[in-house]
Design a protein around this nucleic acid. Sequence first.
DNA 1: TTTCGGGTTATAT
DNA 2: ATATAACCCGAAA
Length: 645
Amino acid sequence: MAAKVTGSNDETECSQHEHVVNRWLVDYYSFLALNFFQNERNDDFCAVRNILDSVLARPLESTDDMPIKIRVLQFLSRINEGEKLDLLFESDQSLSPLESALVLLENMNEEFRIPQQDFESACTSLKEMIVVTFIKKGEFDQAKEVLNKHFPKAKGGKRAVFMGLICRKGKTHEVIKQMSFQSFKEEMLAFCQGLCTFSIPFLYKAAKTLVDKRLVEQVDKTAEIDEQDEPGLSSTPQMITIQFRPCTHSIIQRARLQAAYKALAAGLDEKTFAELEQEVETEGQKREDLCPHHSSNGNGDANLNSEQEKLFQRNSCSPMEASPADQPPQTDAGPQAQARSVSKALYTVARLVVEPDSQPSSQCTPAPEELESEVGTEKPPQTLVVSSEKGFKDVECPVADREIATPTRKRPRRTTRTVSKASTSVAELFTDFEEDSPDPVTNGKMQCEDLDDQSNISLRRNSSKTTQSSSSESEEDTQLSSSFQTPMQRPHKSPSSGPTTNVSVDLEDICIRDTSSDGSPKRSLRHPVPQKSSTPHKDSAQGEDPSHSKWKMLYNNAKESKSTWSDEESYFGSKRNTGSNESTVSNSGHKKRRWTDSETQKLRDGVKKFGEGNWSKIKAYYSFKDRTNVNLKDRWRTLKKANMV
DNA sequence: TTTCGGGTTATAT
DNA sequence: ATATAACCCGAAA
């Protein structure tokens, strides 16, 4: 807040605003994307994903769970295109969408704390689906390759079945029939929902509130209009509170409007105010027609009305406006202020949208805080009317009940506030929404029906996870950052940067560091090896892409928010622990980081390409997150020892 | 500076 | 408590 206040600078303020708004947008579209994925609305999912790419290219505030959400969406994007083997998410390696998803999954496992069992399960399903997909498409050579790669040794009956099919070039088998891609997608979705909660976004709630409000107003309007029409009013109108109910066409406003109109139209012979009004009414009616709910029974839903009224009363404006914008996500100003200011930097840098390379690094600072969670409150489901869009509908339904979603946030401070909505001022209202979120309970509900079960579960996990995730992120960046399709480039290594970073590798490094609070973008992220993006591209398309950059940014932001800055390293502990040890994490030091399959595979490829012992070359060519030459060497030694090479 | 190999330590079982 | 993967450190090239 401080920042805001001080914000003498318009520019600064604007950029800050943009960060906030973009955060809302990301939240909102992430939510929408998940719903589309869930409802099998492929086109809508892709469209929203593209929007997200664009928004992510802009500076924005991050929240604790934003990084994982982004990762999740990237992951789901790949899953969604899983059967399209011609799509490439990673430029370099021609990985199929599902292989790309696997890489992302492994990175997520490192960056966030994912319950090991869930991870293993998802991983296995994904690996099997990779093989099955190749088999179904008749790509037996690739199927064999991935089978050997991911299921090196015996792994039960399925491996044998797959191998049998591959050998005889058969595409059908009971086992394969049972593995429908649809159920696989559902499984992956369930897994993702366990990783983070896509609570009802602020914008959604705000829109809903507005819609509801309109309904109510209409009702009121009809009632009140009569009164207002009276001529007398016009005289004193102004004083009246503009504030109350302004946004809508409330009566009061009308009076003001009339006065204003008279003044402005004084010498003209345009329509009289009354005529004008008439037109408006006509329009209004038309509108009503469109929305049966409201019009038909003015007061129709009691629920709605009452609730909305509350909102309205407090808010003078449409909810949207009033909302949270102001509130910084977190409660206290202190940190926030910082965050925001930082973001500014982002602003500038960030935009690089166009060029993937440019990366702003860091920047965005995150505001940790929170998200607003909730405006919620509204209950009436019906609001739908307004939303003509299908998309919304889907969303709405679930939501309708209550929302409140509060994601888990990890952020510390926050005064505990109870969520009472009753709070008075508008501002508070929003504030509450945003901050409070603590109620997990409510959260769950938002998800669509199918998910419900899961959602509960997910919530819990999330909470723990998200937290972790925040701190952890290391590798992911890579992914995010890289996301997008870029086909080409490998990493260039950037000029050598310090020892640590070096190589082109991953953004992760970068990101993490970036996060370091300073905000100075030190490392630019380059996209090294591009890995995947959310948006696939066939080859042709490449053109734009801001996508990755955005993802990266997000990432960065997100990370930053977390905190860890200080640490230089990326993961603070992260890794995978199964959970228990945070202590370890906390240690400044590093803990041991287990090698992922993808890393191991890169190492194998590297040795194959450059020969054993040329660790520095291998490290420079491939992106290894936070591995030193010696680490590579040691890993190779381990592999040899285990006869895995 | 990079690589190697022995020793140490964190982690999973 | 044990086995082992991951990591550290000093020496050598």
